[in-house]
Amino acid sequence: PEAADLRALSRHLYEAYLKYFPLTKAKARAILSGKTGDNAPFVIHDMKSLMEGEQFINCKQIPTQEHQPQTSCNILDAVELRFFHSCQSRSAEAVREVTEFAKSIPGFINLDLNDQVTLLKYGVIEVLIIMMAPLMNKDGTLIAYGQIFMTREFLKSLRKPFCQMMEPKFEFSVKFNTLELDDSDMALFLAVIILSGDRPGLLNVKPIEQLQETVLHALELQLKLNHPDSLQLFAKLLQKMTDLRQIVTDHVHLIQLLKKTEVDMCLHPLLQEIMKDLY
């Protein structure tokens, strides 16, 4: 394709990204570096601040299997589960945002509808993990649309297996952030992830690969223009896709473990759909 067409595709995907994803990297980095003046995020660093911070978290309650009377023993357990439920609600909303973004990729909605479902089922958690990276630094992560900063140490202090959920994402994100992608680069990279032609069960791979190839060309050109001094950035970025698959596999296994061990845990129906028979 002509360079002008590739640039137009890049602009289109960047506009869709800005339209559907409310917390951009530019905004997140401004919050993390304290450039937002009085609007500093609320910091959650222990159980007390978690309980205080819950009012900031947009929490749609997911019904638990049964309401058990709270004892002093399980109050802290309940806090962790409640927080986990809030994370699920936000994740489900994020899946909706990613779906809208996917639909804006030229050609995506013309693919076989079963294949659209497969691409989203397998791609959406990878996309969500990539989108976490701009919200993170080595010390913690923004949550609740940037209203809260939760420390990495606090997440590590939660009981098992909750404490194991975020640490691999921090390790990945800190390395990923050294690539210094901006929002316009991210938009193309997310589209490349969604258009992976090797997802299990795809019916018609060829049109997906053709779409991905065009977006890959657009991404390669974008990185050359936007990061002229960053050698091999395109290759380094593509390598991240391998790490990402392992992180998603481990994440899904942890969720499956949670489902078995936490009697009060209810998985959001949309997330259940996505994770069922995933890996």
Partner: peptide
């Protein structure tokens, strides 16, 4: 596959945000 993924399918089929998440 569509049958097993009703919410995803619905999200794909509608142009706005139709599903009560």
């Amino acid at each position: 596959l569509k049958e097993k993924h009703k919410i995803l399918h619905q999200l794909l089929q509608n142009s706005t945000s139709p599903v009560d998440l």
